[in-house]
């Protein structure tokens, strides 16, 4: 559910990107209405779901850099309400309080993605959904990310490539050991 709402939110957020980028530095009334709508809950099979607070915070931080008009806000809110309605009508089997995109039926998923993609393309944005990582990224025409769906706590240790390097050292050690074995079998000593 979190991912589904995130994707819908992403598509809705994309609509805001047509707006002039004159620095807003504030949350106007239209944007506040959108934030309030994002805070709504959806009920599916007796369970209650809501958009994670980090997504709403990202929306708020984004709204600080743009200005939403009433028409745009109304469109976004309508999309949010439609998304909630579609999800609540979806055929799902809920275990626990979280619903993943893959828990929805295929038609619902297709509808959500189609709307999200078209919304982004209409304003020159590109929505990318990585099914492997189950993550969503929206980029602008310059390829800059304007929204990222990633874990709150990041990997801040040695980078993965360094681990690969360490593995290479291990491999080389094994190769050297193999040299020893070959030497022995060749009866060099």
């Amino acid at each position: 559910m979190k991912k589904v709402l995130a994707i819908v939110f992403v598509a809705i957020l994309a609509l805001t990107c047509v707006i002039s980028v004159a620095a807003a530095g504030s949350i106007n009334a239209n944007e506040q209405k959108v934030l309030d709508a994002l805070g709504k809950t959806a009920k599916v099979s007796g369970a209650t779901f809501k958009i994670p607070s980090q997504y709403i915070n990202q929306a708020k931080n984004y709204f600080l850099t743009v200005d939403l008009t009433k028409e745009e806000a109304d469109t976004i809110i309508a999309k949010i309400n439609a998304a909630i309605a579609a999800i609540e009508k979806a055929k799902v089997s809920v275990s626990g309080n979280e619903l993943d995109l893959h828990d929805l039926d295929r038609d619902t998923r297709a509808t959500i993605f189609a709307n999200a993609t078209e919304a982004c393309e209409a304003i020159g944005l590109r929505l990318v959904y990585d099914g492997t990582d189950n993550a969503v990224v929206i980029t602008n025409e310059a390829g800059e990310a304007v929204f990222e769906d990633e874990a709150v706590i990041k990997k801040t240790g040695s980078e993965v490539n360094v681990t690969v390097a360490a593995l290479i050292v291990v491999v080389l050690t094994v190769v050297a050991a193999a040299g020893v074995v070959v030497t022995k079998k060749a009866q060099l000593f």
């Binding site: 491999v171 040299g179 020893v180 030497t183 000593f189």
Partner: peptide, 19 residues
């Protein structure tokens, strides 16, 4: 011993070069 070491090093360097 020197032969052993030389072969091991050669294998390691060759392996690293390939990698």
């Amino acid at each position: 011993l020197l032969t052993l070491l030389a072969v091991s090093i050669a294998f390691a360097l060759t392996g690293y070069l390939i990698l």
